[in-house]
Design a protein around this nucleic acid. Structure first.
Lengths: 244, 244
DNA sequence: TGTACATCAGTGAACGCGCGTTCACTGATGTAC
DNA sequence: TGTACATCAGTGAACGCGCGTTCACTGATGTAC
């Protein structure tokens, strides 16, 4: 006979003992899924293999996720969340009025997170998983949540007058036909088109370096990618006229 | 009874009739493989499915490729080749001393090729295919062949004195510990570390935009990606001090 | 030109594997009185 | 506190599928004389 723990403690946290355990197992499934991606590649994510490693039968997993796609979606959402949190933490680690330092910190965090979690990064920014189509209403806001951390820093700098952008930029930003991000969530200011444009530019640059590094296309040419990356950030900051 | 064509014509081209047909079927296999990737995603590339579409039995394909990996390798090599050719053509389409125009042309070609051949692009620059490991001695030179087209243009501009880089750049390039590309193939000049550095920066930037666009991460924010891309090239050219 | 032989493309059967998913079920856990 | 019932986690068997790869083979194509 097993112990019948009265579920008082758990109910204090707003969930029954069963609900808590369910949550834990859902998390364990995701953890093993990540582990499996790391070993076999993002594209080969199999419920059967996860069940095997958990010493369960495959059908048991259907108690926790209705099907394989639901699990993939959960992993993607988690990854976007984790990245956004990492960026937000990096932003928060610097004094609020030190815009250059904050931007630098955020961009360094972007790379650090990608290198520390290469498979989560591939999951959200790499090839789509064959046969899986992410629900758009889920991923689009998730992308923007990450981006909005960067945008928040830049918008703050701009509003504070600490940013000196090239003169021709407004006209360019205009011609690019930006779509307003519907709502930003992580920050409170509205983002001007100009800042959106600058942000996309910087993001693309940073993102390109990381993508190339992740798939080992930089390594044959660049010895010290860390220094390379730092310099790129530096020149970005300079290009934006962000005063230190 | 089928016709016994005397293999005179084919032998004039240096190969027997049989060899020619073999080559054609190898090509057809690759073509269908590409088609299949386009429909199912890069990661799901199956010999059985290819055979089915060619109305052959799966073992028949083993006459043409020793195993699945060999086919993937052939596809990758082809893709690198095609990209390098597209870039080289773009470079050749502009007057030899119009460095800005040549660079612009090459960078536009990079994106055009990626958008026109998204799956080949994913094959070479996206997630590795699960269970497949590209032979390094094949892919590293292939990457550099593409890059060397860009480098060739820039080096020529630099040598001709048509390039005015920021003053602090040499020191930065130094600190990044570039590795000399072993041999470049597509062009004749030696590439200076400074140019290598500039090239990697520009490439990463361009590459980042394309990767984001390819996976639809730019579209929610940027209405006119074409214009966006052109402006980025423009500002790159300006940043390098390439006179028009 | 015809004949004898060698080459080689493609077949069909088979091997052993893994996958997602369904279903009816058992037995443990939780709940209400 | 004990009892009766409801809930639900996990099982085992099964379905139908696709995969890469091997093997001994047939029959067409090419080659040498």
């Amino acid at each position: 006979m097993k112990i019948h723990n009265p579920p008082i403690q758990a109910e204090l946290a707003g969930m029954t003992r069963r609900e808590r355990i369910r949550g834990e197992i859902r998390d364990e499934i995701k953890a093993i899924a990540r582990q499996q991606m790391a070993e076999q590649g993002t594209a080969s994510l199999s419920l059967t293999a996860i069940a095997r490693r958990m010493e369960l039968t495959p059908p048991a997993l259907y108690r926790y996720y209705p099907d394989r796609d639901a699990l993939v979606t959960a992993l993607i959402v988690d990854a976007f969340d984790a990245l956004a949190v990492a960026l937000a933490d990096a932003a928060a680690s610097q004094p609020i009025d030190q815009y250059a330092a904050r931007l630098e910190s955020v961009l360094l965090a972007y790379r650090s997170w990608a290198l520390a979690n290469p498979f989560d990064f591939q999951l959200i920014y790499g090839n789509p998983i064959p046969g899986y189509h992410a629900p758009v209403e889920l991923t689009v806001p998730a992308v923007q949540r990450g981006a909005s951390v960067i945008m928040g820093v830049l918008q703050a700098a701009y509003t504070a007058g600490a940013m000196h952008l090239p003169e021709e930029l407004p006209a360019i930003a205009e011609s690019v036909e930006l779509r307003a991000s519907p709502e930003s969530g992580m920050h409170n200011q509205a983002i001007s088109p100009l800042i959106t444009y600058v942000c996309m530019t910087g993001w693309a640059h940073i993102h390109g370096i990381i993508m190339l590094e992740l798939f080992n296309h930089l390594q044959p040419t660049i010895g010290n990618i860390d220094a390379f990356y730092r310099h790129e950030i530096c020149s970005l900051i300079q290009h934006m006229g962000l005063s230190r």
